[in-house]
Amino acid sequence: MTNKYKFPQQNLLEDEEIAAWIFLAPALVLLGFFLLGPIAYLFYLSFTTGSFTASGVRWVGLRNYLRLVLDPDFWQVLGNTAYFTTATVISSLVIPLGLAVLLNKSFILRGLLRTAYFIPSITSLVAVGLGFRWLFQTEGPVNALVMFLGFEPISWLASTTWAMPVIILLSSWKQLGFNMVVFLAGLQAIPPNRYEAAELDGANSWQKFWHITLPGLNSTIIFAVVTTAIFTLRSFEQIYVITGGGPLNSTNVLVYYIYEQAFAFFDFGYAAAAATVLLGFTLILVYLRLQTWGEES
């Protein structure tokens, strides 16, 4: 026999749920209008060709995606993006992690050094890009140092070999402070008694780092990898300011390639198809992060 009556607590929970949806409704409408709407329109554009002129756009189906598969420039850009992302993520994890371990200890000027290392995270990428372009120009300070050490100057930004490492150096430097703070927060969440027990067992610094610090930072490292990869995948300013995708397309990454196709060649359908590929990569990273949250909870 079912109970026709509801307890007051059940009514209260239902009222709270209704109130929650009422308060969430404006945010959900804005989210749908400014996020989901443009994504849907991007997906539609990827099946069209033409520009926003009197002729309008024309439906072409999967032709833009087939063109992506057959375009050697797109595959070169994907290779550049993979190289750029992998190198930036690795350097943006190893160096900040080492700094966080050092700055987690008590010593004079620790607060000053933490602030100094965090400053790159709040600087303008355009300003930093202009500074790096000046530093690495043929007659710039970096080549002056190279010649002072007795080596031949290097055409950093005109070389297909060295231009990308300059971009990676800038991006890693820009991400250094943020990841350092993330790792510091993770280190402070590790119980100190674990290190004390390891010291009693005779563990050295490397053993404590390998068996206590790294396992304790597992979720923090995954978070840093995902956020750094997303930051790197959407990189545009440093490419635009320093190299413009050159020389010989060697520093052209996916976001800059999309920009070129859309606003230099006005091929919006093809640019939308490339942007959809980028969106797919980003959603994979977001899914990995959500999976991590699910395992933690």
Rank of each mutant, 00 (worst) to 15 (best):
I154L: 09
Y117T: 12
L278R: 09
A158L: 04
G111V: 09
I242F: 09
A40N: 01
I119K: 05
N11A: 14
Y44I: 01
W206A: 09
Q76T: 09
I39H: 00
E296R: 04
S235E: 13
G131M: 14
Y256Q: 06
P215H: 07
N64E: 03
T160K: 15
T115V: 11
V89D: 12
R63C: 05
T228V: 10
V225Q: 12
L278M: 11
E260H: 04
I258D: 00
I258A: 09
T251E: 15
G216K: 02
V255P: 07
L66W: 00
G150T: 12
W293G: 05
L13C: 08
P153K: 10
V255R: 06
S106Y: 01
P153C: 09
M164K: 14
A203T: 02
G50S: 04
N64L: 06
S106R: 08
Y257W: 07
V166H: 01
R133G: 04
I122S: 04
A144E: 02
Q291M: 07
T86W: 03
E16H: 07
T292L: 13
E17S: 13
T220E: 02
Y240C: 03
F223H: 10
L28T: 02
G32K: 01
F265W: 03
A87P: 06
L93D: 15
V60I: 12
L13Y: 09
T48V: 10
I22K: 12
V255M: 13
A158D: 05
S121W: 02
L45Y: 11
E16T: 12
G177W: 02
T161G: 07
N64T: 04
T53D: 06
Q291K: 11
G131K: 10
Y259C: 13
P215V: 13
L283H: 01
Q291V: 04
W134G: 00
R133S: 06
L214E: 15
G294S: 12
Q261M: 05
G177Y: 07
P26Q: 10
V225R: 12
T160C: 06
P96M: 05
F231I: 05
M180E: 13
G269H: 06
I90Y: 13
